[in-house]
Design a protein around this nucleic acid. Sequence first.
DNA 1: GGAAGGGATTCGATCGTTCAATTCGCGGAG
DNA 2: CTCCGCGAATTGAACGATCGAATCCCTTCC
Lengths: 347, 347
Amino acid sequence: MVDDLPPLPPTLADVAELAGVSRQTVSNAINSPGLLRPETLARVQHAIDSLGYAPNRAARHLRTGSSRLIGLRISPAQEYTANAAMDRFVHALVEASREAGYHLLLFSGGPTALGARPDPLAGYDALLRSTAVDAFVVTDTYLGNPQASWLAERRAPFVAFGRPWDDDAARHPWVDVDGAAGTRLATEHLIERGHERIAWLGWRADSRLGEDRRAGWEQTMAARGLATDGLAIRIEDTIDAGWTASAALLDSVAPTAFVCASDTLAVGVLHTLVARGLRAGPDIGVVGFDDSQVAQVVPPGLTSVRPPLEQVAVELVRALRALLAHEPCAGGVLLAPTLAVRGSTAS
Amino acid sequence: MVDDLPPLPPTLADVAELAGVSRQTVSNAINSPGLLRPETLARVQHAIDSLGYAPNRAARHLRTGSSRLIGLRISPAQEYTANAAMDRFVHALVEASREAGYHLLLFSGGPTALGARPDPLAGYDALLRSTAVDAFVVTDTYLGNPQASWLAERRAPFVAFGRPWDDDAARHPWVDVDGAAGTRLATEHLIERGHERIAWLGWRADSRLGEDRRAGWEQTMAARGLATDGLAIRIEDTIDAGWTASAALLDSVAPTAFVCASDTLAVGVLHTLVARGLRAGPDIGVVGFDDSQVAQVVPPGLTSVRPPLEQVAVELVRALRALLAHEPCAGGVLLAPTLAVRGSTAS
DNA sequence: GGAAGGGATTCGATCGTTCAATTCGCGGAG
DNA sequence: CTCCGCGAATTGAACGATCGAATCCCTTCC
């Protein structure tokens, strides 16, 4: 039995020979076509096409020092929450990267299984030292981002999805979604529907991200002259916490609507309503944050703040290209979310 | 202002000089430590550690021909469905690959924007010819997989998640989830809870995947001597279709439970129940398929067949390693799902 | 004592591309 | 007629690792 291997891909030299030019000329045809005489270019192009030539990435990477790969660390999918935004974001990032001639390299946080502290830096270091990627996209900067400062310290190129909340000295480019603007949209939407007692379900006060979103609710309420006393509560980001807290609020201050820091919390509210025989929408308004798949499909549809992830991805890649081209750092970009209106705020 | 660049990473030669050995000895220390005398190995190791050396992936790739990268094409996240399994799967695959010393390279299907047919092969070809990846994981083989036969034709190494339903000549390794076993679990679970009129909500008959899942329901019903006449319906995989179809079934044959080919369809059933004031669980049993985040969090919790994606990923990587080591193809692997029981089948 | 053996280490070439420097060819200016 | 200048194409070296073959050194055996 003959174990015929796949044919070896053609190289620059093969193309050069076929076209009757030198290797370098073929290289130029690909990288700086303007240097060639039109007739030569055509001849080389024809040779490239007929051989099905594509530059060997390894050789190019070795010579130029650029792998045209962007590193993205993904954390385990959180089950039993509604935080599935990663899916949409990853795809948007793949698409934006492709248009810039980059691919995405995924890696995980190392041995999370057992016997190891969950080192947030594992993986970054190895990829950096082996020159596997040109840059990183860092996503979970809201956790006091040790990654960002660590990467900055090593002068590793990276762009963050999320503001450097805690670190005033941070000088890296970032892209973020304006959480306050999102909850402002949500609150105004509810007020327009006639609600006045609008509760806030948010995270612990040490979450800067959570406080940002809370501010949008608070500002809007104040601007409309609506009271907020006792209407805000800070809890963990789980369905059960949202469930318990919303039940307690209904019993104490009797809000007619909830603005939530996440879809997960909003789903907790939906559970309370179902348990009490109340209808989301006509009886109690509910707005989530993230526009997860859950928000889109859960009956009767959860109105939710939708982060413009496609736009975020485009801006991240734009910043990355500037960074890699050693252009001056343009600072941060703040993008406005939209509101996806569904049944949970219908009357 | 000094634009101090990141320091150049150390090379084999640097380590060799520090340790007082040749380049090749350092290379051996990394790739075949058994060849070195223990004392030499220790000396080299110390030099490696103190310099923070890691092999340059580009150089290694160029020389060995292996990029230690696995290509995975991701399609746009389908919104307004409950098919978020990709998230869990991608992470499981990243993790399994990491343990085998591989990383995942994500790519998309090319210019899906406008003016282009959605070529399912775009991306594969470019990566293959530029030797960017060692192999592919192909996931959407249920679509009559042109990828599989195309890749096989080019002798490109790949492993499929999904059986080669239509192609008897297919000789590539694959891993799949036993859909019939899953719906068997679901149907038996409902029968144990006292249900006898159990409906099937599935896909069009030309979906082999859907017919596989349907078979599990049908076999189980037959084995228990339960009638299935008029209880099965074949529709598209959308919430609206599931909604409409389940409403029609309730009016015509009045089933007490639904087994669905997907969580998306099951969510459609939930919508019907909410609209009619019926409770999922006590009134009507509902079982989905995929164990998506939606199933996990939607009130009152959707019982769902859970594909063992972590196990699938491990088997895929195992098959990939065998393939790349030119070991004989071990054929396919069929894995049994489990049932995640939740409120939608409670009494 | 010398040859044979074998484990440890070294040397030179090579993977496919791009960079830097050079050569070639041609037209116009001196 | 020579020389300069410029665009177009070529040549040789280098990126950092691994492969194959050669070399060294030390032990063992006759």
